[in-house]
Structures are given as C-alpha cells and as structure tokens.
Nucleic acid binder design. Structure first.
Length: 110
DNA sequence: TACGTGACCACGT
DNA sequence: CACGTGGCCACGT
C-alpha cells in the first residue's frame, strides 16, 4: 500500500457534510510534516475519494482548480451536502472540522 | 541514483 | 493584509 493509498483511505472516512485538513490527515498517518504530500495525493485521487472535503488549515478550498468538473466543482459538491462556502472558505469551518482521531472506526496502519 | 514538482505549513517582514 | 522563504517528502521521469 503506497502512502497515497493510505491518504485516500483516511479521506474516505470523512463524514458527509464535514471537512478535514491536509495537516490533520497527515498527522493521523503518523506523518506530522506530510501535509504537502496529502495535497499531492488528493490531486491524484480516483473517483470515490471525497477530495472536496479536504481543505487547508484555514478552511480555504485550495484545491478547487484541480477538479475535472472545473474550478467550481469542489464548492458545488460541498454545498450539495450542506456545507456553506463563502469566498473560497468553508463557513463555520472549525465546527465542521473532522479529525480522524475522533472516529473510533479508524485505526492507523501498522 | 538524482532531480523537479507541488490541492501545505509556519514564520518573518 | 500580501508576499517571500525555508522546510517538507512521495512520486514520476
């Protein structure tokens, strides 16, 4: 299993209507300085991985340009699940933030 | 083996 | 607020 695949596995745990961050996912994988690589993995994510739920530490949709549906696709998908977005930023970001550690179903690899 | 490339982050000015 | 800088490290070539 590549690191990319591990990142995707965590991203799939993000509940509908919630968001997480690159840094939080990296940390959950025991990879505290791997946020950048998480972004890299999101860019390469296959269909089925909710990449639109991953934003940066400020709640900004930094990856919107990478979606095949165009730069508005990320926001559309978030809105479709009830997440409000204003000027590229998730409204109530802190309240909607999901961290892998809070999900008892998730166990780190190894 | 080596290198360029970033959907990041923290800090400084 | 807006840049700039240094660190980071998997992945493809």
């Amino acid at each position: 299993m590549t690191r990319q695949e591990q990142v995707w596995a965590v991203a799939r745990q993000i509940p509908r209507g919630r968001v997480s961050t690159y840094g939080a996912i990296a940390e959950a994988l025991g990879w505290p300085r791997g946020a950048r690589q998480v972004g890299w993995a999101m860019a390469a994510a296959p269909a089925g991985v909710p990449a639109h739920r991953v934003v940066n530490r400020d709640g900004v949709l930094s990856g919107r340009h990478a979606f095949t549906g165009g730069p508005d696709e990320m926001e559309r998908r978030l809105r479709a699940e009830g997440v409000e977005v204003v000027e590229d930023r998730v409204v109530q970001f802190r309240r909607l933030l999901w961290e892998p550690a809070e999900d008892p179903a998730w166990r780190p690899p190894g």
